[in-house]
């Protein structure tokens, strides 16, 4: 069963994002919303950890949340997919379950 992990915390402030990565399984998807969107940035103290997770998991970011925090898409880690709310809904449909790492 594939799971959609929804993260809404900046990886620079709280452990929720790290905890999500520690518990996501191969084939799962991770969606960054709200403050977690900043985690999509490349060249941070967190980016290598996220890249490692991307070896066997799909990572998405909600475009509106990324833009709202002033992070342009060209500063993102390669391979992260930008979705809108329709894409968010589709991710919840494509995966069997969702877990919010609040």
């Amino acid at each position: 069963m594939a799971m959609l992990h929804i993260v809404n915390k900046s990886p620079f402030e709280r452990v929720a994002f790290k905890s999500c990565l520690d518990h996501a399984l191969a084939g799962d998807s991770i969606l960054m919303i709200e403050d977690a969107a900043v985690g999509a940035t490349d060249g941070t103290i967190f980016s290598e950890e996220l890249k490692a997770a991307m070896a066997d998991k799909s990572v998405y970011v909600l475009g509106g949340d990324l833009a709202a925090r002033g992070v342009s898409e060209d500063r993102m880690i390669d391979g992260i997919k930008v979705v809108d709310y329709a894409g968010f809904v589709n991710l919840t449909v494509e995966n069997d379950t969702t877990q919010s790492w609040v």
Partner: peptide
């Protein structure tokens, strides 16, 4: 263990977190 916890979480239908 964390690994076992990940497997337990993956086996659920509904995840409530507050």
């Amino acid at each position: 263990s964390r690994e076992e916890m990940a497997a337990v979480l993956a086996a659920q239908d509904v995840h409530y977190s507050f």
